[in-house]
Design a protein around this nucleic acid. Structure first.
Lengths: 342, 342
DNA sequence: CTGAAAGCGCTAACAT
DNA sequence: ATGTTAGCGCTTTCAG
C-alpha cells in the first residue's frame, strides 16, 4: 500500500493524504479523520526510505562503539542503549549501531556524515580533549555527550553524573566511620569521569585534615584481576588501607576477593564502596546489596540523552544536566577497626 | 557531491558512473578507472537513502530486543551484537537496533516489515514453538536464529552451541572425579537451550548408573539471588550435592557465595561448573578462571550469524551450524570429598 | 482547504 | 560500452 494507492481509494490527492497523516494544520478536520481511518484500515505505513529521501532526514540516531579485541562491551553501554533506543522508537527514530574496530572510529563518523545515515549521535565515554567533539562539529552533525568534556572551552551539550561530589560524599562517610587509611582504585584517568572522582576523593580527605597518598591512588583498566592484584599488594604493605573506594563493581569484586584471600573480613577489617552504574550487579547480585555503592541509573540516562538529542536536532534549546548518584548502604562498610599493635 | 554532478564533471551519464562504481561488468576498464579516481578525489559517496529507495533494499539488519523493566540487558547480547555489527559494517549493511517493551515485540516486527526498514533479522533466544518464526515467515523477512527451535518441523536456519553434549561432557567429568550427588541449576526451560542442557546432564548420570533427582534440578531466571537461595536450600538438606552445574556465570556467582556462606570450600567440598558465553565474567574476572566452565565464543557467534544472514538474503544456500563449547578447567572443581559419617 | 507538479539521488530497463 | 528514460514513494513549493 503506497501513498498514491491510498489517495486513489479515497479520491484525494497524495498531497492531501500526506499532509493529513503528517499532522499539517491546513487539512479539513473531516477529511483528516477520513484519511486516518482509511490509513489504519489498510494498514498503511509510509515507506521510510522514500520519506527519508524526500525530507533529507534519516530519522535515525547513531551510536558508534569502538571495538577492542580484548575487552568486552561494557554491560553499562547495553543498558544505556536500551534506555535510549526505547525513546527513539517512540519518537519515530531508528537506532543505528556501528560497532567498529577502534582504529576505524573517525572514518566511521565521516562515512555516517557523508552518506547522511543519521540525524545525530551520542558520544560515549568522552576522553580528555576528545577529538570526536571537534570532528562532529566539523561534520555539522548534532550530538549529545554522555559524560563531560570539561577541558573543551565551548562545551557541547552533555549529561553527566556528579562524580566529584559522589566520591567526596562516599569518602566523607568513611571518614565519619573513623577510617584514616584510604585507597582509591580508579578507572583510567584518560576518561574524564575518573579524574573527577579522584578530585572528590582527595577533597574529602583534605577537608578532614587527611593526606592523600599517591601510592594508594591507582588508575587502571577496571578488570577484576587488576583490582585483585593492586589490593593484594596494598594489604601486604605495612599500615594497609582500611577503606577502599573503587570505580566499578567489577573491580569491587576483585577487591573483595583479595580481602577474603588475605584472611580479612569485608566491612569489619576493610570497608569498601563502589561506584555502580545502576547496575549490572547490584540489581541481580543480592539483596541487601553486597556493596555499599554510589548508583546512577544508566537506563534513565540513556533515555534522557535520547530526549536531549531529539530536541537538539529539532532546534530546541537544550541545556546540559548533571545528575547525582544515589548512595546505598550495603554490607561492605563498617567502623574503622581498632588498631592492633603489630 | 551527487552522482549527477560527478557525471557532469566527467562528461559521462549518471548511468555509466553508477555502473562503474557498483562494479557492473559492462564498463570500459579505462572509463571505470577514470571514474573511480574522480570519485575518490571528490570524496563522492552515494546517498544511501536514494540508493535504498531505488533498489528497494534497506541495507540494514534488524535486531529486536524485548525490554523488561526488571532485568538488565544480557551482556552476552551486547557481545553478540558487537560481533554481528562489525560484519554488517564491513559488508555495507547497517545495524538497526530496536529495544522495545516486551509487549510491543510482535508489533515492532510488523512495523519493520511494513516500512521495509530492514532486509533481514536475527532472532535471539528462541523459545519453544517461538511465534517469531512463523511471524517472520509470514512477513517474508529473511532471518537467522541464534539458538535452536527443535520443535518446529520446518526448521529455520540457525546457529547454536551443542548444549546437550557440553553438559553431558561436564557432568561426566565430575562423575569421573568421583561425585555422585549432583544438582543442576538451569535457565528457564521455556528457552530451548535450557532443555537441551538438562538432557545432557541427565544423560551423563544415566550412562553412569546414577539417578537424577528432580528436586535437584531447577530451572529459573538466572540471577545471583535466585541461585544463592536455591543452593543454600540444597546445602542445608541431608546429603547435599557435592557437584553443581549451572547455566550462567551470574548464577555461578550466587552458588559460590552460598557455598562460602555455608562454611564450605569451593572445589574442595563442592565442585562447580558453569556454562559461560565467552564471557562477560570469565574474561575479566580472574586468571586462571575462578570457575571451571563451558565456554562458547559469543562474539564469533554474532559474526557468524551475520554472515549467514547476509548470504541468506543474497539467496545463497545456507546451512545451520552447531558449535561446540570449549571446556576450561578452573579452580572450582576437585575430587569428590570423602564421606564424613555425620 | 486541496491539487498539480517538481523534485530528492539513485538504479535499471530499454535502447543505441 | 554508453546514454535515455522512467521510475522508487514520498514531501513540498506553488497555484488555485
Amino acid at each position: 500500500m503506497t501513498l498514491k494507492e491510498l489517495a486513489d481509494r479515497l479520491g484525494l490527492s497524495p498531497t492531501t493524504v500526506s499532509r493529513a497523516l503528517n499532522g499539517y494544520p491546513e487539512v479539513n478536520a473531516e477529511t483528516r479523520a477520513r484519511i486516518e481511518i482509511a490509513a489504519r484500515d489498510y494498514g498503511y505505513r509510509a515507506n521510510t526510505m522514500a520519506r527519508k529521501l524526500a525530507t533529507g532526514r534519516s530519522m535515525a540516531i547513531g551510536h558508534v562503539i569502538p571495538l577492542s579485541n580484548h575487552q568486552m562491551i561494557n554491560p553499562i553501554f547495553a543498558e544505556f542503549m536500551a534506555g535510549a533506543s526505547e525513546i527513539y522508537s517512540s519518537e519515530g527514530y531508528e537506532t543505528l549501531l556501528a560497532a567498529v574496530p577502534a582504529a576505524n572510529e573517525v572514518q566511521t563518523y565521516r562515512e555516517l556524515a557523508r552518506r547522511r545515515s543519521v540525524d545525530g549521535l551520542i558520544v560515549h565515554a568522552p576522553r580528555l580533549n576528545d577529538p570526536r567533539v571537534d570532528l562532529l562539529r566539523e561534520l555539522e552533525l548534532p550530538f549529545v555527550v554522555h559524560g563531560r568534556s570539561v577541558d573543551i572551552e565551548d562545551r557541547p551539550v552533555f549529561l553527566d553524573t556528579n562524580n566529584r561530589r559522589s566520591f567526596e560524599q562516599a569518602t566523607t562517610y568513611l571518614i565519619e566511620l573513623g577510617h584514616t587509611r584510604f585507597a582509591l582504585l580508579n578507572g583510567m584517568e584518560t576518561i574524564s569521569f575518573a579524574r573527577r572522582r579522584r578530585r572528590g576523593f582527595e577533597q574529602a580527605l583534605q577537608n578532614n585534615g587527611l593526606r592523600s597518598d599517591a601510592s594508594r591512588m591507582v588508575d587502571m583498566e577496571m578488570t577484576e584481576t587488576n583490582a585483585y592484584d593492586v589490593t593484594m599488594k596494598w594489604l601486604n604493605e605495612p599500615k594497609p588501607p582500611t577503606a577502599i573506594l573503587t570505580s566499578s563493581t567489577i573491580s569491587a569484586l576483585g577487591v573483595a576477593r583479595a580481602i577474603r584471600d588475605a584472611g580479612l573480613q569485608i566491612g569489619d577489617d576493610v570497608s569498601l564502596i563502589t561506584h555502580d552504574d545502576d547496575l549490572s550487579f547490584m540489581r541481580n547480585v543480592g539483596d541487601p546489596p553486597p556493596f555499599t555503592a554510589l548508583q546512577s541509573p544508566i537506563r534513565d540516562a540513556g533515555a534522557k540523552c535520547a530526549r536531549m538529542l531529539i530536541d537538539h536536532i529539532a532546534g530546541k534549546k537544550v541545556s546540559s544536566e548533571i545528575w547525582k548518584c544515589e548512595f546505598i548502604e550495603g554490607r561492605s562498610t563498617g567502623p574503622a577497626p581498632k588498631e592492633t599493635p603489630a
